[in-house]
């Protein structure tokens, strides 16, 4: 290996490390809050409610009528969760908070689907 080789290798490693750090740093900066997300709630595939998810909002509760009783949704600071549901296994409640476009909470027994809509739902499209 010549000195040029070693220099080139060091350059490549440095470039890799720098780009890695740049990407990590970029990832940790919060995304601009310009895009507003909506949570769309549907029961039996019929949209029944639509909530704006914006950051800095206080906790709000919303009651959704399902086939077996009322489910309670909570929205707070740009996120939404199923707080309680009359279903048996409570998978929807255990799912916790969701906040990113494309995420969803699904309660099969109650046929309730909460899905966040907004920009950036897909990473990429292949054709």
């Amino acid at each position: 290996m010549t000195r040029g080789d070693k220099l080139l290798l060091i350059l490549v490693v440095l470039a890799a490390i720098c780009s890695g750090i740049a990407i990590l740093a970029h990832r940790h900066t919060p995304a601009p809050a310009a895009s507003v997300c909506h949570a769309v709630v549907s029961v039996n595939s019929q949209p029944v409610a639509r909530f704006v998810l914006s950051s800095g909002r206080a906790l709000e509760e919303h009651t959704i009528r399902g086939p077996n009783g009322n489910a309670v949704l909570q929205t707070e600071n740009g996120r939404i969760r199923m707080a309680s549901s009359p279903c048996r296994d409570k998978l929807c409640v255990k799912h916790g908070w969701i906040s990113k476009p494309g995420e969803s909470i699904i309660c099969l027994p109650e046929r309730i689907v909460v899905r966040i809509e907004g920009q950036g739902e897909v990473d990429a499209v292949t054709r």
Partner: peptide, 17 residues
């Protein structure tokens, strides 16, 4: 270019190494 996305940039450090 094919994906019309800059997301592949995350792959740069891996492929460089």
């Amino acid at each position: 270019l094919l994906l019309q996305s800059s997301a592949v940039i995350y792959y740069v450090p891996v492929l460089l190494l």
